[in-house]
Every structure is written in C-alpha cells, then in structure tokens.
Design a protein around this nucleic acid. Structure first.
Lengths: 122, 122, 122, 122
DNA sequence: GTGGTCTAGACCACC
DNA sequence: GTGGTCTAGACCACA
C-alpha cells in the first residue's frame, strides 16, 4: 500500500480519502479489524494524532466503529458500503468530466470519447 | 495556477504532466511565449535544472519549440494539439476506469454509472 | 459510583450534595452503615478532613447519625427522608426551569414542553 | 461568564455544551462574531487546539460558520436556532426526569411535583 | 490579525 | 496493548 500525499491538501483529508477507498474496495473487508492508530500512523509516516483525526471522521461517517479496548473495525452495514460506492463513483466521474472540460471538450465529445474508449478496451 | 506535487513520483514528470495539461487546455495558447525557465522554476518552487529537463522533454514531443534568441513557444501545429487532447483524454478516462474497477465495479456497471451521471448532470 | 467534582465549587459542598442524593435515592438505605471516613475519602480522592466536614454537616441535618463506637449510619426517620425527596426534587426542578428560562423560554412554554415530553416518553 | 469544567468529561465536549447554550440563549446573537479561537481558549483556560476542536464541531452542526480570514460567526438560520432550543429543552427535561426517578419518584409523582412547583413559583 | 493543520509527547481509562 | 484527550508550540494561507 502506498501513502503518497499531495502538498496543499490537508493530510488528514487525504488519509480519509485513501481509507475510504480501501474500505469501498474491500481491501479492508467488512467487520475486519483495522490496524491500530499508531500502526497506521507509522505506516503512513504521519503523527498518530493526524491519523486519529481521520479515523474519527470515518467513524462519524459510519464507515468504521470502535470497540473501546480492542480496536477499530470496518462497518458491516452493507447499506452504507453500497452508498459509499455510489458516492465515490460520482466523485470520480465528476472529476473526469471536469478534467476533460478543462481541456476544452464539450459534454457530447466527452460522452463520445468515453464510449469510444470503452469500446476499444473492453 | 497551483503546483502540487505528489511525493513518490519524479517531480519533472509531474511538471511535464502539468504543462501538457496547460497547453492542451490552451491556458498556454498556441504560439504563445512561455515564461522563462527560471521564472517557471521559481513559480513551481523547483530547481531550474528540473524545469529545464521537463521543457526539453516537451520540446522532444513537439509541444513547444525554441526560438534560439527569444525563448520557448507553444507549438502552433493543430494536428499535434488535437492529438494531445485525445491522448490526455484517454489517460484520464483510463484512470477513472481503474479507480472504479478498484472499488469493485464491472465494465458494464461503469458504463451505466457514467451514462447515468451525464444524464443527471447535463 | 462516580465522584466528578466541578472546579470553582467547594469540594465538601459537592460531597454533601452527592451523599444527600445517594441517601435520598436509597443507594445508602435507611439504617445502613456508611463506609468509614477514610474509605469514603479515598474513594472520592479527597482529604479525609474534607470528607469529615461533609459528614458532620449531614449529621447536623439529621441525615446520618453516629453510633459512638461502631460508625455512622443513615437515618431511619422516614419523615426526614421524605422531606429530603421533596427538597431535592424542588432543587432539581428549579435548576431545570432556570436552564430553560436561560435559553429564552417562558413559564408557559416550559410547562407545555415538559407536559409534551412526558406525554411522548411515558 | 464562567467556565467550570467537570473532571471525567472531555473538556472539548463541555465547551460544546456551554457554547451551544450561549447560542441558544442568544448570549451570542445570530450573526454575531465570536471571539477568536485564541481568545476563547485563553478565557476558558484551555489550549487553543481544544477550543478549535469544539468550534469545528459546532460548525459541523451548523451553529456557527467560518469567514476564512475574519472570524467565526453565529448562524443566522432561525430554523437551526429554533431546533436547537427544542433539542436542548428535551435534553434538560430528560436529565431532570432521570434525576427524579433516581431518587425513587414515579412518572406520575414527577408530573405532580413539577406542576406543584410551577404553581407555587409562578 | 484570522482560522487551519501538523507534530511531539504526555496522560488517562479500559481489559 | 487499545483508543481518547490534552497541551505546547510550530507553520501555513489569507487579506
């Protein structure tokens, strides 16, 4: 697993994104115990407090839950996990469209380009 | 314009990507004179040698050309600029598909999700 | 049992309140022997002198009595215990009304809100 | 204004409660600029980070909003402020009922005691 | 000046 | 060992 942080964006926010992605992709499976805050922090090369902050936010969003003395676990709520996929997909698609519009493509061209790409790389 | 570099990826390569994007999006218009290497380097907060290396590569790719005594200019070759758009678009689309596959979506779901998104955000 | 002391209020006074509450709620039953001053002090994390002062005041109020050689006991006088309930209830109710007035509610609104709450949580 | 913190309860959480109360009571009026994080922190005798955390939570709840470089302001959204009153009132009433039940009173006695108190102190 | 982020290091409760 | 809280102090962007 790689932890590449862009400058100019809060690290804790990038951590949230990365962990969200791992949960959505089931790299961290539902019900699975996450590494400890300290381990995750060391792995990512950040301060435990920073990792703690990211995990607290994930908990607020219902993606993980805390078992006081034994650790944090990925939610088993499939409703949340499904919604997660939809939300992430939407964000990613929007980012693509933004990028393509930024280089001057119209919505119709974008749709065509994607359809074309998918046809050629199926 | 922002210069946010990810760690773990060669800076000069990220510079190439950024400048390519600016040329493709016509932020640097065809025939326009680019800022000096020194200015670009300072702006990006990198060593001038690094910026020089990136520009040399762009020149090799035909995106810019050097006027010996007066500086570097964006190519006016529309064929190249058009091809650039296609290439960039392809890379972006591929990245999206990768991301969506990473969170467990099938090609068919991906196509559906994009079509859906475009329909809802037209 | 928890002993959480607010700063800014004399500890012995908070101890009196807490013990009064325990007696009113029959957590310390009528006629029951209280723990020793030293034990109570250790449990509350205060100086034995402080606990002693609080117990003396409870004795003055007739809530406990001292059996010279065997310790302190909760009063068995039901009149006192009943009065205690009334007094405590009055204090609690007053505190609630104060709080609600502090956030801008009128007496009539307060009465309505309480009635409403009791109806919904019966 | 007093800042008395109970031990055993996170300070930032008590700060949230206190500030919520001040907003609900219009001690901090809608649209009013709050003191700076640093000033509030000094006033409460806590670390600025602790105050920051509390304010971030209030912002998440929509009670305050941030104007990047000029400070934090109380929301002007009357809907939120009204809802706040209801929520706070509910919490306070529940706490009273809990207390009275703890000293052995039945719901019917509680209702009677409150009605009685209000009648005597109108 | 403002809010926001990050780190380093401490201490606590829980089991 | 686990998560949670708090402090002290630094640095940044913004206007």
């Amino acid at each position: 697993m790689e932890w590449n942080f862009k400058s100019g964006v809060p690290i804790y926010s990038q951590i949230i994104d990365e962990l969200t992605m791992r949960i959505a992709s089931r790299a961290y499976a539902p019900g699975e115990k996450l590494p400890s805050v300290r381990d995750l922090a060391m792995d990512a090369g950040v301060n435990p407090n920073t990792m703690q902050r990211a995990l607290a936010e994930l908990e607020r969003r219902g993606l993980v839950y805390t078992e006081r003395t034994s650790g944090r676990f990925v939610t088993k709520d499939e409703t949340i996990l499904q919604g997660l996929n939809g939300a992430l997909a939407g964000r990613y698609i929007e980012e693509l469209v933004d990028r393509l519009e930024k280089i001057g493509m119209e919505r119709s061209e974008i749709a065509a380009a994607i359809a074309d790409w998918l046809a050629r790389n199926n």
